[in-house]
Amino acid sequence: MRGKAHLLPLLIWLAIPVCISTAVAQTGDVAVVINSDNPATKLSRTDLRKIFAGEKRSWPAGLPIRLFVRAPGTHERVMLLKLLGMTESEYKRYWTTQVLRGEAQAEPIALPSNGMQREAVVAYPGAIALVDAQDIKPGMKVVRVEGCMPGDDGYPLH
């Protein structure tokens, strides 16, 4: 009896860090969300990079893509820069270059909150945004990236 009583708190103590680490792992994933009317269900990592680099500007059905990104300093922004392989400074220069070349109308709109990203995704049929997997809300359609959903093993935006 005394041995079992020793085991219980020990197991709880061991279990807590595991739970914490699992929770942290979930917050690390960033979901790719689109308008719920958009028929797209999956994207490759290459497609995603091209979309957020402004190289791919329309969905397969011809609907113009509307980019929404998070403001600097956010988790989603860090993931965006990682996806593009750029620093924040390179990102700014890249979009200035794209605009002056005539390849883009303007730099993607940077939104300060995921709530605003949700509103934008709901409002614009061609919208796409990166949202922390924990902040996914009704009205956002999550697409698979390389066949994986956020939380899956091997999900690329982690």
């Binding site: 509307r66 939104l111 509103e119 709901v122 409002a123 614009y124 049929p125």
Partner: peptide, 19 residues
């Protein structure tokens, strides 16, 4: 019409409208 979805927040729509 897309921008006048009731759930659209004003700042987003305003900024997008300008764009």
């Amino acid at each position: 019409q897309a921008a006048s979805v009731p759930t659209a927040s004003t700042p987003v729509v305003a900024q997008e409208f300008h764009e």
